[in-house]
Design a protein around this nucleic acid. Structure first.
Lengths: 345, 345
DNA sequence: CTGTTAGCGCTTTCAT
DNA sequence: ATGAAAGCGCTAACAG
């Protein structure tokens, strides 16, 4: 019994089945199974099953230069599995992949180590395709890799990849509308790092909508943080210390919104009675916070799902290169109205 | 530029470097680099870099029968990345692996499809070792696989694997002590499925401790759920409908504790004034719930970390088979006292 | 220190 | 329908 697990090569199977390795090989793959006589097939299968034979992945891959594996490139950061965003992304991605016979492999790229253009992902990582999140820090503008690639949440032009992204601009619009409908005009906007294209787009939509109703958002009301709760708390404190008459906050992620709400409480300000807050993402905490956060929900799981579907469609030839490369799939966002927004007093 | 990515074999490099493939091979691996003359080395490296040469993983693996990859076996369930428990586990595991040159690969096993004993994981999955969670549903009692294996959170005897687990019994003890010290004697215990060894052990420790102080836990006070909030809510309702005079709940996971607290509120009962609740796990929500949940914290991230460390130690020969197989690493748990436990009135 | 050579286990023509 | 044989790209003796 134990010995059967060891060393089960195609040769062994062929020998005990009394056929050639070519026949065993054909019998083992769905695509070629038809070329084997039914009886031979049954015979080989029986032996294979009894001995727990499974073709070696490496040998197959070496021969076929096909790995049935998709690389999921992520920033080389700690605790990535604890982040709400990545959890959802993986979740959608892996759920979707489970339905196929593809596997996925997480590859943590070191953004600082080098730019990855030109790196032979296919053979070095044994992947057929890749999906990358956090693109701008990995690759130079003349992005070029040797496997088809889906880039998540970072629309860029002239890059040979497929883009899957949330409709961040529309999200900014939704946030703006929900705020000005309650009469808010003095709104502080909290954004992420300067290279954050997410924030760029969210704010673009926000500003455009505010401008349309006659309330421009001055640049000095846009504050930059690192998407962290702490940053937001600090910024909030500063704003009120300087006696700016702000009646509402639009935060480019929920984390920052939580920071604002916390600091508000510390300053003796009530939300939403005194100050309204709108977030972005709809993290798990958003519905449990005090008050529950009104926020823009991105379909993060869906993002992962679509990424996997698109890439498999390409690999399996269901869609053409034309339909894949340089194309964009934009997922809608929606406003989740909870309790952190109220009329201006 | 584009062409350089394609077809970069050891032969090409050897040819343009004017050396043999063996020399290139030696130059490419840290272990053998010393055997190459410094000048030759520099020359080869320069060419390799210029052409973005990276040895083919499949070929290497095929040759070396070593994959530098560890399989993380998980139940084939949806939304696994959303669960607090798995997130932490992965997190600890992947953080730790990032420090090494091993990768990991998630393998979703279908528990219902077949039992996996005898399946040639090594070659079929291209992994050197595996860590499995959710063991009892994957394997038959005569567990035997062809790669070293760490089993998480499922202590079992006579199995050729290494076990990494939380000290669940001690956790039960802590919960019991914290409750009886406040005078509680009528305690409802909510557990997971009958095959849940976690629950078995947690309750074992709990009962033992209660018995020691003279308060046996009757079997009819132990209620079975599926570790879900809903189950707990239903059970709680039933308990109070039947007018059982329960003053406290010990839940074998936090999820159920949240369910209890929710139902308590609905029934007009205050926590902890009227009824105390202790959970297990210390999920993220536990500190944000109302009231914040007193619970037993398992070092879940650490579990993943230790699993990876142990297995790498074995693979690298830092520890012997004797120190690995049939051995157990037990991680301590601790009581996190928050606001859901009060004195009995 | 470097080159030659024999495979690792499989897929895929090309014959038969 | 089946078999023989040529590699896929690399590593590890072995010889020099």
């Amino acid at each position: 019994m134990a010995r059967q697990i060891e060393k089960n090569t195609i040769w062994e199977i062929a020998r005990t089945a009394g056929v050639s390795i070519a026949t065993v090989s054909r019998a083992m793959r769905a695509e070629t199974r038809g070329k084997v006589a039914p009886e031979t097939l049954k015979h080989i299968e029986a032996i294979g099953k009894k001995r727990h034979y499974t073709p070696s992945l490496s040998a197959r891959n070496l021969r076929a230069t096909r790995f049935k594996t998709i690389g999921f490139m992520i920033p080389h950061i700690h605790n990535i599995f604890l982040s709400d965003y990545y959890s959802k992304l993986f979740c959608g991605f892996s759920n979707s992949l489970m339905g196929s016979d593809y596997r996925f492999k997480l590859v943590a790229l070191k953004p600082y180590a080098r730019k990855w253009d030109g790196y032979p992902f296919r053979s070095a990582e044994a992947i057929d395709a890749m999906v990358v999140e956090y693109w701008p820090t990995f690759f130079t503008p003349k992005f070029k890799v040797d496997v088809p690639c889906v880039i998540i949440n970072d629309p860029a032009d002239g890059i040979r990849a497929h883009f899957v992204t949330s409709d961040n601009e529309a999200g900014g619009e939704l946030a703006a509308r929900c705020l000005y409908e309650q009469g808010h005009e003095c709104i502080a906007v909290l954004r992420g790092q300067e290279w954050s294209t997410d924030s760029d787009l969210r704010i673009k939509g926000f500003k455009r909508t505010m401008a349309r109703v006659g309330t421009a958002v001055p640049n000095e009301m846009i504050f930059k943080g690192e998407y962290e709760e702490e940053d937001a708390a600090r910024i909030t404190e500063r704003i009120f210390l300087e006696k700016k008459k702000v009646t509402a906050f639009f935060c480019c992620n929920d984390n920052m919104a939580f920071g604002v709400m916390r600091k508000l409480k510390q300053l003796g300000l009530r939300c939403p009675e005194d100050v309204s807050v709108v977030g972005f993402d709809d993290e798990g905490r958003a519905s449990h916070s005090d008050p529950p956060l009104t926020t823009v929900r991105a379909m993060t799981q869906e993002l992962g799902k679509v990424a996997s579907e698109k890439i498999i469609a390409l690999l399996e030839g269901k869609i053409s290169d034309k339909e894949f490369f340089y194309k964009k799939t934009v997922l809608p966002v929606s406003l989740i109205e909870r309790k952190s927004v109220g009329p201006v007093r």
